[in-house]
């Protein structure tokens, strides 16, 4: 599993049946990558529903959340609609699990993503990662702490630049 200070590998996946999404499109923003095993399974439902309610909070930290599983793009479309999800779900579908493998969070045995979280800063550097037991919704306290420390670091950096200039 990729760790803090490593560069998050770029990728391009389907976000909707006719649109792709590339990680580098979010450069300049903090990004939460939430790998999860499957649409529809009860714990994931809770986890994605929780993030869905938190979009306003994430926005305060200039952060976007993106969900990733091996489900296909039509499956994601149905799932997003059923759960009223207002954020992007990506289909790591072909070749199956390729992106999850790059991040070291593919579960070969079950053929699905692990339940894993990565928080990236605006330069695409991993600032925090967490592997959750597959049956447990990891919540969002760790994500918020990571976003807070990124924001603080940026503020310190910002003031140094100001002093120098």
């Amino acid at each position: 599993m990729l760790q803090k200070n490593e560069t998050a590998p770029d990728f391009q996946l389907y976000a909707t049946p006719d649109q792709t999404f590339a990680l580098h499109e979010l450069r300049g923003k903090n990004v939460i990558l939430a790998f999860y095993p499957a649409d529809w399974s009860p714990v994931c439902g809770d986890q994605m529903s929780l993030y869905n309610e938190m979009l306003k909070i994430f926005r305060k930290y200039n952060a976007e959340v993106v969900g990733i599983s091996v489900d296909g793009k039509w499956c994601h479309a149905a799932y997003r609609q059923a759960r009223n999800l207002h954020f992007t779900l990506l289909a790591d579908f072909e070749p199956k699990g390729e992106v999850a493998r790059k991040y070291g969070v593919y579960d070969e045995k079950n053929g699905q993503c692990e339940r894993a979280l990565f928080v990236l800063d605006g330069n695409g550097i991993i600032q925090w990662s967490y592997l959750s037991p597959v049956g447990i919704n990891p919540g969002a306290d760790g994500i918020l702490e990571a976003l807070e420390s990124i924001t603080q670091k940026n503020n310190v950096y910002g003031s140094e630049v100001n002093t120098a200039g």
């Binding site: 809770d46 986890q47 929780l50 909070i57 447990i136 990891p138 919540g139 969002a140 306290d141 918020l144």
Partner: peptide, 15 residues
């Protein structure tokens, strides 16, 4: 209500 919700996620509420 929002402050309660935010305190919940900070406290690790997951459902």
């Amino acid at each position: 209500v929002e402050a309660d919700f935010e305190s919940g996620v900070r406290s690790g509420v997951n459902g």
